[in-house]
Structure formats: C-alpha cells, structure tokens
Design a protein around this nucleic acid. Sequence first.
DNA 1: TTCCAGGGGTAGA
DNA 2: TCTACCCATGGA
Length: 302
Amino acid sequence: MRKLLIPLPPGFNFIATVESHGWYRLAPLSWDRNTQTLVTTEVFEQAAVGLTIRCSGESLAITAASDAKLPSRELRDRMRRMFQLDVGLEDFHRRCAKSARYRRVLAAGYGRLLCGSTLFEDIVKIIATTNVTWSQTVRMVSLLAEKCGRKTDSGHHAFPAPEDISRRSAGWLQTHCRLGYRAAFIHQLARGIVSGEIDLPGMADPGQTTEELFRSYRQLPGIGPYGAAHLLAMDGRHDFIAVDTEFRRFVRDRYFASDENIGDIELVSRYQKWGRWKYLAYWSELWESSRVADSSGVAKDQ
DNA sequence: TTCCAGGGGTAGA
DNA sequence: TCTACCCATGGA
C-alpha cells in the first residue's frame, strides 16, 4: 500500500484546516499553498517515510514518497488526529449560521485545527510556543526534528518520538536545539513517557469530562492553563480559552478599543455566550481577520 | 542595553 | 487563591 484514501466529513475544507493556525509552519510539516500539498515525514516500524497529503474530491489522499509499505490502520489513525476528522462541528456551525459575522467562517469550512500526528508531538510544540516569539518556536521545533528525529533516505526528518528525545540529556537538548529552559520540561516529559510514569494514551481517554482532562494535562511538565486549554482544543474541546499575549491583543483591539486595563476575566467573558465553543469562536475570529488582512495586502507573521 | 514573546513553576502571603 | 519573581533565547 503506497497510497491511502480517507473519506472526509461533510463540509471539510482542506486549506482552512491546514492553515487553521501556525502548526503548518512547524517541522516536519511543509505546506505548498499553490499546489495545495502538505508534505510530512512519519515513522512506521522504526523507519521514516515521506508522505504527501492532498485533498482529492471527498477524500484525503496520502501518498508515500518511497515504496515503503504503510500500515493503513496506523496511518489512518494519525491522519484522523492531524485533521480532527472525528470532531463533530454541527453544533458550532449551527451557531455560526445565526451570526452574520460568523457566516463567512461557516462558508469557509473553518473549525478543525491542524494537529500533530501524536499527542506527544502537540505537547512538545505547545511547550515550544511558550514565552518566545513565533520565529523562535519554528526554529526550536525544526532543530528538534533535525537533531533528534529519524531521517528518510532523502534526508527529511520526522518529529522525534519520546525515545528519540529521552536518550539525550536536557543539557544537550538545550544546547543543540536552542530550547532554553524548556529543554528540562521536554526531557522530563519524554523520559516520563518512556518509563511509563506518564501515560498519554490513558490520559487521552475520551470518556473523561473536559474539566478532568484539563486537570490531567496540567499535570504534564511545562503545561499550565494556556497549554492545557490548547491541548483540549486539539481534542476538539473548546470550553477553555488559552489566554496568551496574542489573545489579549486581539480581543482588546477588537472589542475594548485597545484598552490595556481590561483584565483576562473580562476578555474571556466576551466569548462566554459560545459555551463549549468559546475557544473555537475566538480562533475563528482570529482566522477570519487574518484572511481580511491577507486580501488587503497586510503581511502575516505566522 | 532593554524589552518581550502563542507562559510555567515556585515560594510566600 | 493570588502575586512576585525567575526561568533561556534572540530579534527589535
């Protein structure tokens, strides 16, 4: 099997999902908007394999760059996570349809956030977004893949597995991947997973309530309220808003005349009416505003 | 030189 | 529970 087709849910929009947030700019992903092709590298049975992902009609078409045999079940599971294919958005879309501002979001098929192919990858990437500029995040993730990830014959690196990271020291990661103080968190996370102390599959049990999952994620090294809310969003749970400098700036500018005195509680309350879709409502506004900026020639930095 | 970015951990109140 | 401080890094 060199090529796999995965049926897509109704209303799925490939470009809107890939460009849903900055993840498509992080290794091992590479996105060509002109050809609408997402390229990545995944590891199957210890071997790195280059993958090309396109949208073909009502399906996602994944093609292996080599003649490597791909385990269809595993590949399917990873793609379902990456594109949030199991997240039901009907309720969110019904709410969007009631608002003139959100009808454009609905029409564009926005609502699924691009994720890593594993929970581990997303946790590490979220840690790499904290308290740094976006360009530094891109560099850290790129170095992590380059220095620790497994490599294809053509020289492309996959995102490292916990085992690949835990065999390095925290000091080595800090020096070679420029992770700063985050190196200790990422190393502790990887080592905990390898030793069995941290059980990510158990943690991702869909039977948990969102509050339970939020508390579980907060136990992870380097994951606080922001990171836990971000991880929940990657599970398709948008009850909590990940408050960061970007959120504060955007909401203050849009709703509070850029008033620096408005606190987080008031900023978050702006989305209270969205119930379990609070964070996605914010993401949608941010995404929609970036489309407007694009069409008016304003450059985006991410 | 100083500030700050898609924050988190910790000690002390 | 809340606040203050520290944590590496690199671009502006």
